[in-house]
Amino acid sequence: MWLKFSRKHVYMCHRKGLPPSHSYRGKKAWFDGKAEHGRKGRILTGQEISQNLKNFKNDFGNFKQSATKRKKPDNARGSFDSEESGSEEEEDEEVQVDKEELSRWKKRSIFLKLPYWEEIPVRHNLDVMHVERNVAASIVSTLLHCGKSKDGIQARKDLENFGIRKDLHPCTQGKMTYLLAAPWTLSKTEKKVFFRRLFDFKGPDG
Rank of each mutant, 00 (worst) to 15 (best):
D81F: 14
P121F: 06
S103K: 13
A155N: 11
F199T: 11
T185Y: 12
W184P: 08
W117S: 07
K27N: 12
K191N: 01
R156Y: 02
H169K: 03
E48H: 07
V131N: 05
H124A: 12
I49E: 09
C13D: 15
G203R: 04
K202D: 13
Y24S: 12
D32M: 12
G61H: 05
R39Y: 11
F111M: 12
L44V: 05
S66H: 09
K64S: 10
I110K: 09
L198F: 15
R156G: 03
P183K: 03
M129G: 05
C146V: 14
K64Y: 11
G206I: 08
R108K: 13
S149W: 01
A136D: 04
E190W: 12
I49H: 01
E84Y: 15
G163Q: 04
N58A: 06
F201G: 00
E84V: 05
W117I: 11
W117H: 06
R196D: 15
C171S: 07
K166Y: 07
S109F: 03
L3G: 01
S82Y: 08
G163T: 04
K72Y: 06
V135T: 11
E101Y: 01
L102G: 00
T142P: 08
S187K: 01
D92F: 06
R108D: 03
N52F: 03
K28L: 06
F201V: 08
M176I: 14
I49G: 01
G203V: 09
